[in-house]
Design a protein around this nucleic acid. Structure first.
Lengths: 219, 219
DNA sequence: GTCTATACAACGATAGAC
DNA sequence: GTCTATCGTTGTATAGAC
């Protein structure tokens, strides 16, 4: 039997979930204590202030990125480009199963807190940076299929902005039309990079022809 | 001399600004009254609840989109594609002059309120929809330069998700590297659509050559 | 329509016994 | 380390005189 989860962990887990669903400000410490099934006094024993609890939550998010978000995808998909789109699909599924309640926890906190909580801002940025690094790594691994001047970091940023914007619109409209549209455009963009770089000379006409494949010119 | 601004308008203006900078929840009604230089009782005379004031703010945002955001750009730039990128540049400038305090007012409220304030969610969506319509119209006007199967609405959504994500990252990192990276990728994507469709046959080699211009193959 | 005073709840934080 | 009681503040909203 595994050891019972410590009080501190229970608090961080409860806070992490509540911050994701309701935001940082609207979540009361009493609500966190209730959900964690600890007494409110315990909160102040481990976290002198609410913002220190927030810091612990953001640190925890950093440690969970690999085992909870990336690894399940990386384990089942080998192609680095497909890993990225599977990642985007996971955010879509999260929205779906929670009926748009659970967007990107980091993005929410970014908008809510960057201005008013400069200390937390750094931890939020670190979460983004780690996410970007993972996607950037995918593009590096796919570099053989990309143009030589493709910038893996820039592409990773584009993936992140697309995801964050798409999640925002999905939650606002409460449907996936905008989400799917954004991801479709991103897919088109990346496919074009890949196709442009594919060497078809062995068995097909030059890549230049490929770029107009299936497309009819106007007039 | 123009007539003095009515109390109601002063309240809405003050609330609009405070919501944009500090968010809806953290902004107190007393703070709004102070900034508007009206008594707190007046707020409740015009707006029985805080959320009705929010509705007035969101309605006002809708009416201001054209005269305050679009028209200044539309008046100085004719090219529909360049209008879109000038629009993105305006959000960048807004971030710059406010030192990242003022992001996208609608995007902020979208994330803060979609879940907890379903009535306001609709008004937020309407703001997005009007913005999308304007950008979609730009793509329609540029349709001669775009592939026949280009979807103006889908492209407009991609512009919006890029902008919202880019604003989020700029505010989090407090620099424009991610913002500029995202816009550069968007520019590349749209340029590729335009170039692919340009008919160069009259004076230049076929477009197929253009797509690999300046790009060297690996190995 | 304007203004003052105030009700009522929720919040983060603290004190101190155990 | 746990638990209870409570402080002091702030929030939205209301009542009622003018």
């Amino acid at each position: 039997m595994p050891p019972a989860k410590g009080t501190r962990d229970k608090i961080v887990d409860a806070a992490m979930e509540l911050f994701a669903f309701h935001g940082y400000g609207p979540t009361g410490l009493s609500e966190i204590a209730r959900k964690a099934r600890v007494q409110q006094g315990s909160l102040y024993h481990f976290f002198p202030t609410k913002e220190e609890l927030l810091a612990a939550v953001l640190e925890r998010r950093k440690t969970l990125l690999w085992p909870e978000v990336l690894q399940p995808i990386w384990d089942t998909i080998d192609d680095p480009i497909e890993r990225i789109f599977k990642l985007l699909d996971q955010y879509r599924m999260m929205l779906q199963v929670t009926e748009f309640s659970h967007g990107c926890p980091i993005g929410n906190l970014a908008i809510e807190l960057t201005e008013s909580h400069p200390n937390s801002r750094r931890l939020i940025a670190e979460n983004f940076t780690n996410w970007l690094r993972a996607v950037e790594q995918c593009f590096h691994e796919a570099s053989r299929r990309l143009p030589v001047d493709a910038d893996a970091r820039r592409l990773a940023i584009f993936v992140l902005t697309t995801m964050e914007g798409a999640v925002m619109l999905a939650r606002t409209y409460r449907d996936f039309r905008a989400y799917d549209a954004a991801v479709a455009s991103l897919r088109e963009y990346i496919d074009a990079l890949v196709e442009r770089e594919t060497d078809w000379s062995a068995s097909r006409p030059p890549a230049s022809v490929k770029t107009t494949r299936g497309r009819r010119r106007r007039q």
